[in-house]
């Protein structure tokens, strides 16, 4: 199966691309296109040309990682395409083939995977106070710094059930439910994806002369600035 055929198996691709007339409306409305050197119209056009080399180059590039998955492009396309969905399918394929480590933005899949799947499996939440570190989030301001320093007291004051039993805000999600999430991950390919991302990232880290931990921190913080028009 070639890359284009593989892409066609992804439901998001089938939903996201009918025929593109290259009008550029999606690019006009796209928040990522305003910020990055990025053009969803071009991505859709490359894909519909079905040129395998061009598709492979796309999967190894920074370009597919600039999208914010806001789906603003879905609202105005005269052909009811959603470039954001096409990009989701391309990203999934870039990960499956291990192409994501070839680009600066693609390499960020490693710290993202570690953070988000870690939060889901360990706590049952995508975002969790224990892993939201102020040092990594100084934009959250002095109020949040204060909140993180008084987590239990502040949550109690506001009426949350932080780490408590039963229902309520930020309750401890019981182990049996987290076990079910793990079983879902094993059954549906998430565990395989986590392992694949780690394997590819480890190889890339070695190539870059770093431990996996150093690589995680580096990819989380490093910005070459190459993705902007100078």
């Amino acid at each position: 199966m070639n890359l284009y055929e593989e892409l066609c198996k992804d439901y998001r691709f089938r939903e996201g691309l009918h025929t593109c007339i290259n009008c550029g409306t999606c690019t006009a409305i796209c928040p990522a296109a305003e910020f990055y050197r990025y053009d969803p119209r071009r991505i859709v056009d490359i894909v519909q040309r079905k040129n395998e080399d061009e598709i492979e180059a796309l999967l190894k590039s920074d370009t597919i990682w600039y999208c914010g998955e806001c789906m603003s492009c879905s609202t105005r396309c005269p052909r009811t395409n959603t470039p954001g969905l096409v990009i989701m399918a391309l990203r999934a394929m870039s990960i499956r083939h291990g192409f994501f480590t070839a680009s600066e933005k693609g390499r960020q899949v490693y710290p993202l995977t570690k953070l988000l799947t870690g939060n889901i499996l360990n706590y049952g939440y995508c975002v969790y106070p224990e892993t939201f570190k102020w040092e990594d989030h100084q934009e959250s301001g002095p109020v949040f710094k204060w909140h993180l320093e008084h987590l239990k007291d502040d949550f109690e004051r506001i009426g949350a059930n932080y780490q408590g039993t039963g229902p309520g805000v930020l309750r401890r999600i019981p182990q049996e439910d987290r076990d079910e999430l793990k079983a879902i991950f094993d059954e549906t390919g998430a565990t395989d994806q986590i392992n694949l991302v780690e394997r590819c990232s480890k190889a890339k880290a070695e190539e870059m002369g770093m431990t996996l931990e150093e690589y995680g921190k580096y990819t989380f913080e490093y910005n070459s600035g190459n993705d902007f028009d100078k």
């Binding site: 991950f185 549906t188 998430a190 994806q193």
Partner: peptide, 23 residues
């Protein structure tokens, strides 16, 4: 009605491309 056994929907992890659609 709230049930204590519900969890994240996984949406953020999904839109950060860290879990497959079927997950």
């Amino acid at each position: 009605h709230e049930n204590a056994h519900h969890t994240t929907c996984g949406g953020i992890a999904y839109h950060c491309d860290t879990i497959p659609q079927e997950t």
